[in-house]
Design a protein around this nucleic acid. Structure first.
Lengths: 187, 187
DNA sequence: ATTATCTATAGATCTATAGATAATGC
DNA sequence: ATTATCTATAGATCTATAGATAATGC
């Protein structure tokens, strides 16, 4: 096990700790010292691996991109429902990214460009998925392009309601309800 | 004009400034000094009117409650569409509360209970509205109670997409699309 | 007397830089 | 030589408290 590998493992450890601290306090509220403590380092020790706080955030966001790395053309509606189901089992991660999304709309937030570009991409990807499953019109008459933002909005919006009151909100069930609302698929 | 009135106006001024600063930096990132500066006060001068930072947040949240103070039984679907249209004309306010909602899911956030209770109330209110407009079943077969969280989720989720990229997201149009998705109203 | 505001300041943080020390790997 | 980590510390903040000063209102 050489130094390069050990360094990468250390960085991965730090990113995991950062995900936790961001879930608890948001990005602006997350201190490097709190992240460092969680992996048994001093704040300055952590900064050997990530030279600035923003560099650590970049690593966190790249981690997120790695997860939903289903190739665009492979998405299917039932896969999406399964993702929501899966998310309901990991509130910590959902909380991290819901907190980051919320913060990202504030001025000059370092994650703003990331989320802005990500949503453009995700909407396009969802539209493509809808077209491949429903064709150019959904049963209710909407086009895939106009349905995509709604699909994304429901997923995000449900996450907030669920995080605030998990006992009262059946996130996966509600998402399936939304899919029913799109109408029966023609296959 | 007596002192009591002048004091209340000053406090209202401070709350307006706080709304702006929270939109720009979130609550945790909003400093009392930044709010104070905007109304021509020192930070300590501001604290004469709001003894703690949390007290100021409480005032901000009460302000929000005052706005959508449509009596529960008076909501109608087309009024809701008009509200979304109106919101599209005031990105600042939308940004304030989207940032606050995002932060509120982090641990021990002072606005957490507020949002949690608010969503319980709003879901109930929306279900009541849907029932009065559609009856016990919507055209697509869902109950008002199961539709309400979706309605709320779409409104919130669209706000994030719109704030991040106003040119690409037609928030009021998308919301009307969602209403079409609920099916024709039977009146 | 009450209300509004200010100056001074305590006490906690926070990020980032500088530079020392130890361990690892060619 | 490079990598990982530490101590020390600069320089900015931040919230909150204490107490002075001026203006307002009975």
């Amino acid at each position: 096990m050489n130094a390069r590998v050990r360094g990468e493992e250390r960085r991965a450890e730090i990113v995991r700790a950062a995900l936790e601290v961001i879930a608890e306090r948001g990005y602006r509220g997350a201190s490097l010292a709190a992240v460092a403590e969680r992996v048994g380092l001093t704040q300055q020790g952590l900064m050997h691996h990530f030279p600035t706080k923003d560099a650590l955030l970049v690593a966190v966001l790249q981690e997120r991109d790695r997860w939903d790395a289903v190739p665009d053309s492979r998405w299917r509606v039932d896969l999406l429902a399964a993702l929501v189901e899966y998310n309901a089992m990991r509130p910590g991660i959902v909380q991290t990214f819901s907190a980051l999304l919320g913060e990202s709309v504030t001025d000059d937030h370092p994650a703003r460009a990331f989320f802005s570009e990500r949503y453009t991409r995700v909407r396009a990807s969802m539209a493509e998925m809808l077209r491949s499953e429903y064709g150019d019109r959904l049963p209710n008459g909407l086009t895939p392009e106009r349905t995509a933002p709604l699909l994304v909005a429901v997923m995000d919006g449900l996450q907030y309601q669920w995080l605030l009151d998990p006992a009262s909100v059946d996130m996966p069930g509600a998402f399936r309800d939304f899919l029913r609302l799109l109408g029966e698929r023609p296959d």
